[in-house]
Simulated scan of single mutants.
Amino acid sequence: MLSRRRMLGLAVTQRSVTAVEVATAKGAAKVLRAAQFVFPEEAGFEEPDRLGRALREFLHEGGFSASRCVIGMEAARLTAREKRLPPGSGNAVAQILSVAVEREFASDRKELVFDYASGAGEDGTPSVLLMAAPRRHVDRLVAMAEGAGLTVSAVTSSTMALAESANGMLLAERLVLHVFQGGVELAARSRGGPLMVWRLSVSPPAEPDGGRPAAETWLDELAHELRRILYMQVGDSAA
């Protein structure tokens, strides 16, 4: 029997966690189970240990057995900025980004956690996507997972992780639209790596019984927001 390594993905929103358990063997991945954990009314991020215990019970009842997890955050919790790198940056990337962090986040950098992902712009220019998240929120997410008996392997953007999962596509560049209860996010990715992630200002209808007019109105608003973002990106690329 093939040895399978299991990993649990936790996509966290304001009041829920979507849990997906994946097993990998010889480079192939298989989804074993998936379920949504809705926060108890009496528990929230302010009490991560209590929330973790409730999540642990939920995972046990659902048959989840992975002990390691990757936590996905909403883009609303992130600040993402693309940084073009000078030619020949090489091993100096960390130093360049350290200077950028000092310059752009000087007032609150101690309250933030930073990370970056390497990529390339449309013209092939080396670039990185610099991301910052509130340290307190990241600490609470980790505490919640540890309270559920899990070992945290990484904390990332849920939508960027979805875009990464499409890495085998042949398209040079692609957009991934992530629609979930309470929000809509968009990620842009090239063959070289991630380009950007956005939280859109529109949300899907809270209730599915709003009828066709409500759905059409929301789709019109979504299309308008997508056009706005794409127009801004074209303008930035031409600048």
Rank of each mutant, 00 (worst) to 15 (best):
R212K: 14
V38T: 13
A106N: 12
L150T: 07
R199D: 12
A143N: 08
E221H: 03
K83Y: 13
L150P: 02
C69D: 00
F39E: 05
D139H: 07
R84N: 14
P134G: 09
A25E: 12
F37P: 00
T79G: 14
H137N: 13
A92F: 09
A66M: 03
F58L: 06
A148M: 01
L32N: 01
A28D: 08
H137M: 14
M73G: 00
E82I: 07
F180L: 08
L85G: 02
A43T: 12
G44V: 07
Q95F: 09
L112T: 07
V142T: 13
P208D: 03
R5G: 14
D209A: 10
L175V: 11
L59S: 05
A54Y: 01
G192H: 02
D115L: 12
L226Y: 05
P213T: 10
P86L: 14
L186V: 06
A106V: 12
S165Y: 03
R50S: 14
A188C: 11
V38W: 01
S153P: 03
E21I: 00
S165D: 06
D115A: 11
R191Y: 07
L195C: 02
R53D: 02
S127C: 14
V179T: 04
A239G: 15
A28V: 12
M131C: 14
P213F: 07
A145S: 01
A120C: 04
L85D: 02
L222E: 04
V152S: 02
L222W: 01
M160W: 09
A239H: 11
D123L: 10
G90L: 07
I229Y: 03
